[in-house]
Simulated assay, not measured.
Amino acid sequence: MSDFHLHTQLEADTHFVADLALCSVRLMDDARYPWLILVPRRANIREVYELDNSSQHQLWHETTLLGELLMLVSGSEKLNIGTLGNVVSQLHVHVIARNSDDATWPGPVWGVGRAETYESETLTVLIDTLRMKIAELPSYSF
């Protein structure tokens, strides 16, 4: 684990929220969508199948927990989960809460329009809320 480094593009595009047992949880800096990025803290991993079985299960567990949490916090209608990696090859999972009136519905969020950065106060409140809700998860101790 000590060899893990976050890809520079993920570092630039996201804000740290919390570390779970496997993943670093990050908030995408795009206020158009409630959008988390989960990055397994393992060095040189590009694909899910490169994780051992236990880590694969943990990744899915953390993804579904954070997806449910994001839906509760945002009050959104639909959850999108994806692992594309076409631009950033480091394994990361997109967890995006969507609404039928959002900027790109029903299409994908990638490559459409420009990201709208969070205002400072809104960002602080959202990250604090996410951290509080993560700490309340029954399996946060993992």
Score class of each variant (00 low, 15 high):
residue 1 M to H: 12
residue 3 D to V: 04
residue 3 D to Q: 15
residue 3 D to W: 05
residue 4 F to S: 02
residue 5 H to E: 15
residue 7 H to D: 15
residue 8 T to W: 08
residue 8 T to M: 05
residue 9 Q to T: 15
residue 11 E to G: 06
residue 14 T to N: 12
residue 15 H to V: 13
residue 15 H to M: 10
residue 16 F to R: 13
residue 18 A to P: 05
residue 18 A to C: 06
residue 18 A to Y: 02
residue 19 D to Q: 12
residue 19 D to E: 14
residue 20 L to T: 02
residue 20 L to W: 04
residue 20 L to R: 01
residue 22 L to R: 00
residue 22 L to G: 00
residue 26 R to E: 10
residue 28 M to N: 08
residue 31 A to R: 15
residue 31 A to H: 13
residue 33 Y to H: 08
residue 34 P to N: 11
residue 37 I to M: 09
residue 38 L to F: 04
residue 40 P to A: 14
residue 41 R to A: 07
residue 43 A to F: 06
residue 45 I to G: 10
residue 45 I to D: 11
residue 46 R to W: 00
residue 48 V to M: 12
residue 48 V to G: 06
residue 51 L to R: 04
residue 53 N to G: 10
residue 55 S to T: 05
residue 56 Q to F: 10
residue 58 Q to R: 15
residue 58 Q to G: 04
residue 62 E to D: 09
residue 66 L to H: 03
residue 69 L to H: 01
residue 69 L to W: 02
residue 73 V to T: 03
residue 73 V to L: 11
residue 74 S to T: 04
residue 75 G to L: 03
residue 79 L to M: 10
residue 80 N to Q: 05
residue 81 I to Q: 01
residue 81 I to T: 09
residue 82 G to E: 00
residue 82 G to R: 00
residue 82 G to F: 00
residue 85 G to Y: 02
residue 85 G to D: 03
residue 86 N to R: 03
residue 86 N to I: 03
residue 92 H to D: 07
residue 92 H to F: 11
residue 93 V to C: 13
residue 95 V to Y: 02
residue 95 V to Q: 00
residue 95 V to M: 03
residue 96 I to Q: 01
residue 96 I to E: 03
residue 96 I to K: 03
residue 98 R to G: 06
residue 98 R to Q: 10
residue 99 N to L: 09
residue 99 N to S: 14
residue 102 D to K: 07
residue 102 D to Q: 12
residue 103 A to H: 14
residue 108 P to E: 10
residue 108 P to D: 03
residue 109 V to S: 01
residue 110 W to C: 02
residue 110 W to Y: 13
residue 111 G to D: 09
residue 111 G to C: 11
residue 112 V to T: 14
residue 113 G to V: 07
residue 114 R to C: 13
residue 114 R to G: 15
residue 117 T to K: 11
residue 119 E to Y: 11
residue 120 S to Q: 12
residue 120 S to E: 10
residue 122 T to L: 13
residue 122 T to H: 14
residue 122 T to N: 13
residue 123 L to V: 11
residue 124 T to E: 14
residue 125 V to T: 04
residue 128 D to S: 06
residue 130 L to P: 03
residue 131 R to L: 01
residue 132 M to A: 08
residue 136 E to S: 09
residue 137 L to K: 01
residue 138 P to M: 11
residue 138 P to K: 13
residue 138 P to H: 12
residue 139 S to Y: 12
residue 142 F to R: 06
